[in-house]
Measured scan of single mutants.
Amino acid sequence: MDPFVVLVLCLSCLLLLSIWRQSSGRGKLPPGPTPLPVIGNILQIDIKDVSKSLTNLSKIYGPVFTLYFGLERMVVLHGYEVVKEALIDLGEEFSGRGHFPLAERANRGFGIVFSNGKRWKEIRRFSLMTLRNFGMGKRSIEDRVQEEARCLVEELRKTKASPCDPTFILGCAPCNVICSIIFQKRFDYKDQQFLNLMEKLNENIRIVSTPWIQICNNFPTIIDYFPGTHNKLLKNLAFMESDILEKVKEHQESMDINNPRDFIDCFLIKMEKEKQNQQSEFTIENLVITAADLLGAGTETTSTTLRYALLLLLKHPEVTAKVQEEIERVIGRNRSPCMQDRGHMPYTDAVVHEVQRYIDLIPTSLPHAVTCDVKFRNYLIPKGTTILTSLTSVLHDNKEFPNPEMFDPRHFLDEGGNFKKSNYFMPFSAGKRICVGEGLARMELFLFLTFILQNFNLKSLIDPKDLDTTPVVNGFASVPPFYQLCFIPV
């Protein structure tokens, strides 16, 4: 058959498939802009700032609406009420993970971030239990974070109060905490193996944040037939998995079943207990991918939040002064901060919360999916439909947070200066898919920041009023603009 005829037939089939998918069930789905064949609503979305586009569309179609990214149908949730109703009140029905062709290629359905069903539930339950087990290797997770915080302070001392970009050092600290939990080992910041790991993690975040990856996920045929950065992403992930597998083999040879040292040991012990169960989800494949998931999810998000926190503290020296006064009063100079201190430091706690609220790190979270046909607000959402959640619409709700575009710790303080919780605080998402490392991340943010401010004054290279804190939105995360500062020993 003539190649031209084959091409026309293929394009015609794709067009018909697109029209059929977009028209099927439209009477039951939430409203939304009319999609174009094949490309859907992509032309109506700013790929570099999806969150802003969703906010604009919500003003037209309401808090629940339908979009098509290519052939992929998505239902968008915008605003606290619908997000709570879906992710919390109907948590089980909305607990699936959205379709990610690239991740599915890399992870093969294993791990904790992109798995679904029984596998996801069992691996998540085990990971939560293990991360909360403060007795691994007779050292609590808090001990590990405190140790890394001391190392971080010593690295900052080496800058000798000269101007520096904190990106690298602030990236090393949370990565080392995860390494300590998974591998029972922290690395020197100049260790070549550690630097290679950091390089792969950072490069992957840069790649994932590009519009090209959005295109690959919406048109998965590209993955096999086109060159691009997605190939580098898959190569980096394969490198990390190979490295983790080597460490798993080392653990198998040296493990003491009665004295687990780290996450890998705990997983291997669980595998041993379930070795007679042919349906067990505790396999080497799941261990390797879960460890890679924890490394990827637990490094860049925390380091970016820390980097943004220091920029905001530079911009608002009056806030920094209040935090340091609270540190001096509650902790002093002669001991290290600990998590028990947080309950006695409402202002510092409010500042950490406000940093996370203000920066809105992951504006749309990772997409969910419905696990069955769901009736939601008089609409029928078919099983498997991807759910896109606007966390921006919750964290920047102007009824809950007056002047949401302003950095103001009073958003989390009552009139008496006591810490005030808010149900709208969802930087880790909400419901059954809430970030498994939430507790660890909150511990790291509090301890790293208090250790830094206990030991250093922060000095800006320019007038604080002239510092730009506008986030650089890159399609996946909101990151701070480049800046330098000086760490002046107190």
Rank of each mutant, 00 (worst) to 15 (best):
L485H: 01
V64N: 02
V394S: 04
L128D: 12
D463P: 15
M339Y: 13
V490L: 10
K420A: 08
W20M: 14
Y189A: 05
I289F: 15
L461P: 13
D293I: 03
V153P: 01
F183Y: 04
M255A: 06
L245V: 11
P464M: 11
P227A: 08
C179L: 10
K273C: 11
P37K: 02
R144I: 15
G62W: 00
I223M: 13
L152Y: 01
L57S: 03
L15W: 13
R150A: 14
K160N: 14
R124G: 01
L234R: 11
P464S: 13
V355N: 00
L361A: 12
L29T: 07
I264D: 01
T305D: 00
A430S: 10
A430L: 10
N133R: 10
S460Q: 05
K138H: 12
K383W: 03
L311G: 04
L77V: 07
E326D: 05
I181D: 00
V370W: 00
V153L: 08
N423G: 11
G343Q: 12
I488E: 15
S280T: 13
Q193A: 13
A369D: 03
M406V: 12
N231F: 08
N277L: 11
I222A: 09
D468P: 14
F168N: 11
H344S: 15
F376A: 01
E300M: 09
V323W: 01
I141H: 11
L201I: 10
S51E: 04
Y225Q: 07
L102V: 14
K59R: 13
L87N: 03
I462M: 13
V113E: 05
L311I: 09
H368S: 02
G79M: 00
L128G: 11
S12K: 04
I488T: 15
L467G: 04
G417M: 11
F376L: 09
E444L: 00
L295D: 00
S12M: 14
D224H: 08
A86W: 05
P30H: 04
L391W: 03
H99V: 11
R150N: 09
M426S: 02
Y379L: 05
H99R: 13
I359A: 12
A369I: 07
N378H: 12
L14A: 11
V83R: 02
